[in-house]
Design a protein around this nucleic acid. Structure first.
Length: 304
DNA sequence: TATCCGACCTGTTGGC
DNA sequence: TGCCAACAGGTCGGAT
């Protein structure tokens, strides 16, 4: 399940293997994989053909490749002078639950769930493949904002590994919300790149219950939590991300190894690594929350 | 306006 | 062995 460390691993792979290459041909093999491109698969393929990819970029779980040589059009974004020089448009990607961006030799047989194939106008002999079992992810083409960001993700907050992430502003936003801490961690407009796995891990490290109201967090507590979020992400990044099965792999098809280091997620009934109390799993928003009932005390309920 | 929650999707797993 | 339900979870949009 790709969260921002996994997406960063993929971004680095794209930067190394795809940036600077020119698109020769695009095959859209499943319409759902380009559903965010409202003009449809044929338009997506036509729009990319002949254009060169710039340096891969990322915000949270989204990554994108600026099109370096798309001529300015009548869109407002085309007047942009910020971001990637000359990049009025970008190909935006989201891996969803099970998406993979693979750079494969052209001779390698198609993956079972191959959704989009991008061939290049060079002699390297490799192509970019978007493979996605559950088709929650996809690729699409969008105009850029003046900051060089695809316009449809302008509402996505910076992720905590971004040096421009504002800890004080995040704390203020938490205090204003009438919600609980795990919901807030998964709210990509507040803080991006955190998914269910790393939210549980960071909350376990911070000894915070997932239903803790955000309005009760003190500034030191928020700072401590952000530190744990960053630690979890950096550790995952160092080993290539989390991988429970073959669904998450980098651009070369290699799995990450961070699952061996998880302290909370997926450890129902196993002893807490701090106090030995059996970990618990609770249904939460159509998914699961894993926590230690002793280290992570639930907040006090309503009076009565 | 802010927040909540179901739908989308498909392979795997477990129960019968 | 085969069938079926439950489960996994990021994002969007409708409901409250």
């Amino acid at each position: 399940m790709p969260e921002s460390p996994e997406v960063e691993v993929v971004r680095r792979g794209l930067e190394r293997w795809v940036s600077g290459r020119t698109v020769a041909d695009v095959q859209v093999l499943h319409p759902r994989a380009v559903r965010r491109h409202t003009a449809g698969g044929d338009d997506f393929a036509t729009a990319l053909r002949g254009h060169r990819f710039g340096v891969a970029r990322r915000r949270g779980k989204y990554l994108w490749l600026p099109l370096e040589d798309v001529p300015a059009t009548d869109t407002a974004a085309a007047d942009s002078t910020g971001g990637e020089p000359g990049a009025a448009y970008s190909v935006l990607g989201h891996l969803g639950m099970s998406g993979q961006l693979l750079v494969q030799p052209e001779a390698v047989p198609d993956e079972k769930h191959l959704r989009i194939r991008i061939r290049f106008d060079d002699i390297e002999g490799t192509e970019l493949r978007f493979v996605d079992q559950r088709t929650f992810g996809g690729l699409s083409l969008h105009p850029n904002t003046p900051d060089g960001l695809p316009d449809v993700i302008a509402h996505i907050a910076r992720d905590p590994l971004d040096e421009e992430f504002d800890d004080a502003a995040f704390h203020s936003a938490l205090r204003l919300r009438r919600t609980t801490i795990k919901r807030a961690l998964l709210d990509q407009s507040l803080i991006s790149g955190v998914g269910n796995i790393y939210a549980d891990e960071a909350l376990w490290r911070a000894r915070l219950h997932y239903e803790r109201p955000t309005a009760t967090l003190t500034r030191p507590r928020t700072t401590e939590l952000l530190g744990h979020v960053r630690d979890v992400m950096n550790q995952a990044l160092a080993v290539g991300g989390t991988s429970f099965d073959s669904l998450y792999v980098n651009v070369n098809g290699e799995s990450g190894y961070f699952d061996r280091s998880l302290d909370a997620y997926g450890r129902e009934d196993e002893p807490c690594r701090r106090c030995g109390t059996p970990m618990r799993r609770r249904p939460w928003m159509n998914r699961s929350s894993y926590f230690c009932p002793r280290c992570q005390r639930p907040p006090a309920g309503p009076r009565g």
